[in-house]
């Protein structure tokens, strides 16, 4: 994971001020596996039609918030599993007027399934460059307000063990359903 403080981002043909990330000032919300009961009961649903994310723990709603899915690129419906999460990363892509280059994208939770491989790079993450949640606005990922992304990031599995956390046999990923 690389933090790129002091850089300028590009989105929608505009230069974007990039929020700085000071990892030294942050206290990572790390948890011991045994501390969190019922990890398997966590489930995230993303409604493309309503542009709404709902996170459940059992039958209890942990978080419900407007999000932004694909406008310039499709967000594929399906059943996914989070396989890695990163405190921040750079995202770059698109061409011409749709070109984007965004350092320090916060609270990134990558997901995959047997049809959408890990290398495809789909994720849930915070977005600091727009505030149009509840409306399609991304290149395929699921954009969230930074405050919502942070809350979700600290809740989902794999449980955070550092600035980058991969799943393993004991620290499995939360399921994500996009419909």
């Amino acid at each position: 994971m690389v933090v790129n403080n002091g850089e300028t981002g590009v989105f929608a043909g505009q230069e974007i001020e990039v929020p700085e990330i000071s990892l030294g000032d942050e206290q990572l919300t790390t948890k011991v596996l045994g501390e969190v009961a019922n990890v398997q009961a966590k489930q995230i649903y993303v409604s493309l039609e309503k542009q709404l994310l709902t996170a459940y723990e059992g039958e209890t709603v942990y978080l419900e918030t407007p999000i932004s899915t694909g406008k310039w690129g499709r967000t594929p419906p399906g059943e996914y599993t989070i396989w890695v999460k990163m405190r921040a990363t750079r995202m770059e892509g698109g061409t011409g007027a749709d070109y984007y280059n965004l350092p320090n994208v916060p609270y990134v939770m990558f997901f995959y399934n047997d049809k959408i491989p890990k290398i495809a790079g789909y994720s849930l993450h915070g977005a600091y460059w727009h505030n149009n949640f509840g409306h399609a606005m991304s290149h395929g990922c699921v954009n969230m307000r930074q405050i919502d992304a942070e809350k979700l990031y600290n809740w989902v599995s794999p449980l955070t063990t550092g600035t980058v956390t991969y799943t393993d046999a004991e620290n499995t990923g939360t399921k994500v359903t996009i419909f």
Binding site: Q14, W129, H130, N132, H135
Partner: peptide, 11 residues
């Protein structure tokens, strides 16, 4: 008006 496409662009 739905929101902001960027820091200065309203949609």
């Amino acid at each position: 008006v739905t929101g902001w496409a960027s820091p200065t662009l309203l949609i």
